[in-house]
Design a protein around this nucleic acid. Structure first.
Lengths: 110, 110
DNA sequence: TCATTATTTCAAATAATATTGAAATATAAT
DNA sequence: ATTATATTTCAATATTATTTGAAATAATGA
């Protein structure tokens, strides 16, 4: 993943509304969700939804497809994984044991 | 991790200079790096470094300690891991197989 | 104490991003 | 063709973030 791609993705996620949209889509899975339904769930105006989801789409975190008169958005899970990889890459350069288990749930027993 | 904490972390990482700082510190590991050394490596002014690293510190992604007349910054690896967890949490609600392996290097053989 | 090094603070100017609502486009049903 | 539904576009305004350089603070050593 290119540096600027990662920056764009972080910027896209760094907003209450957009993070809300993305989380809904991550929960929804590959089936995705119609634009209007997302707007309803988050109680935002259609134009606000378009503005923010376009931001997520430019960042490559979501994709869209038309189904009848609805536009269905879905999360790009590959992009999400690449972003995580980017962040944890080169961790502790040469002493990777320090960074082991990053990117997963921590176990209770440390 | 609280929602607003995640938003602050994403915002902190969504900038060329700050991402550069954070990556240097992730590479440096727990030993960290002095403020002046980071500024030199990234070719930015001291005041610019302070502005951006304060942003990272407010977001909880880095910590600082004084050593003599230097201030040593280091990445918070726990915060980085929590952020990754936050992002991949509730993935595909109920169908987690879709999200398996997120947060790790992808294997060549899919 | 005085000078040197390391870092932070502050304020002013500039730049980037977000909000809002009305108008426009696209699809589908009658 | 007309109407209803779904979504996007646009433009004006408001808000927030970034840059820059000079001055201030803090620690060390002569």
């Amino acid at each position: 993943m290119k540096r600027q791609t990662a920056i764009n993705a972080f910027a896209a996620l760094a907003h209450d509304v957009r993070l809300g949209i993305f989380q809904r889509l991550v929960e929804a899975g590959p089936a995705g969700m119609a634009a209007g339904r997302i707007a309803d769930k988050l109680a935002i105006s259609p134009s606000s939804l378009t503005f923010h989801i376009a931001h997520l789409e430019r960042a490559g975190l979501v994709h869209s497809r038309r189904e009848g008169r609805s536009i269905i958005y879905s999360a790009d899970f590959g992009a999400m994984g690449s972003l995580v990889d980017f962040l944890t890459d080169k961790c502790c350069g040469g002493q990777p044991e320090v960074c082991r288990d990053l990117g997963r749930k921590q176990h209770k027993a440390s």
